[in-house]
Design a protein around this nucleic acid. Structure first.
Lengths: 149, 149
DNA sequence: TATTACTTTATAATTCTTATAATTAGTGTA
DNA sequence: TACACTAATTATAAGAATTATAAAGTAATA
């Protein structure tokens, strides 16, 4: 129970007010996501909940993630070669990704409103949001590299 | 021949100096990418070159795109639900994407070196680069929306 | 020209995600 | 609480994008 019950309750309320039923599976996926330190894939979630719900289908995980995303409880992060990762976007933040081990670390920075407004002026789009990721090599992988050399 | 022969030659030289053979298929993929106004998918490229190379395999397109990417001639852009798109990253720029029709438009902005150096300080990563996309609705789709209403 | 290593081709396999249909189970109301 | 309505879950299959494999072809080099 790393995360406050409050946040979970808030999320459940948001689902209810959107007419979404609270099933045990759905509740478990939501709880897992809120407590996740990492940014899990659908399969991570599936594997984590297999013990509690031996009959659960992968489709259920995907269905629920889609519902959460549509309501705005969850952000879907898509990167190069692997599967999507899911993140509870409670606070605005960016991600920095290790090119060696794939680790994703949160990283706060004042939101780039300036970029959005400039893009709007240049392109004539109605801007809704933006995404940004920084790539590099994390400290652990740097150490390993040095040891090999 | 929208793109200067110079750029193509430069790219070919870069491949040669990396020990990569210049085959007709490889040359064609490269040329197509350099001339592309859009940001094509692997399948776009495959379809475009089918006429010239009736026996070409999709795997060849993927193989060559991987080679180009590894050498740094091409950037792979991954978005939500569809396939990767490929972009010759000759000049640093960002993309703005229409949430309605999926169109991708280039968009120049002073590179955010500040973000990179801050991220480096906070996280201890060795930063190599970053990506950013702005999302919104393009002018054409805005017009259509208004007409429907 | 012969050899070697790299490429292409054709095909199969993998992986991630979505669709389908039947069954199960929440939720509001009497 | 029981009922009925509808949504959600399950199991399975299908789909799409990408990668792996092995055989055949081809460029580069001596």
């Amino acid at each position: 129970m790393a995360v406050s019950e409050h946040m979970l309750q808030e999320a459940v309320d948001k689902l209810k007010s959107s007419g979404v039923r609270i099933t045990p599976q759905r509740h478990a996926v939501l709880e897992f996501l809120l407590n996740a330190e990492t940014h899990p894939t659908a399969d991570d979630i599936y594997k984590a909940l297999e013990g509690k719900f031996p009959n659960m289908s992968v489709a259920t995980v995907y269905n629920n993630l889609r519902v959460f995303r549509e309501i705005g409880l969850v952000r879907e992060l898509t990167y190069g070669d692997s599967s999507s990762r899911f993140d509870c976007n409670t606070s605005k933040h960016y991600h920095i990704i290790c090119e060696t081990c794939g680790k994703i670390v949160d990283f706060h920075y004042p939101s780039l409103d300036e970029v959005e407004s400039l893009a709007e002026q240049i392109t004539g789009f109605d801007v809704s949001h933006h995404r940004m990721e920084v790539y590099g090599v994390c400290q652990e992988c740097k150490k390993e590299k040095n040891q090999i050399v």
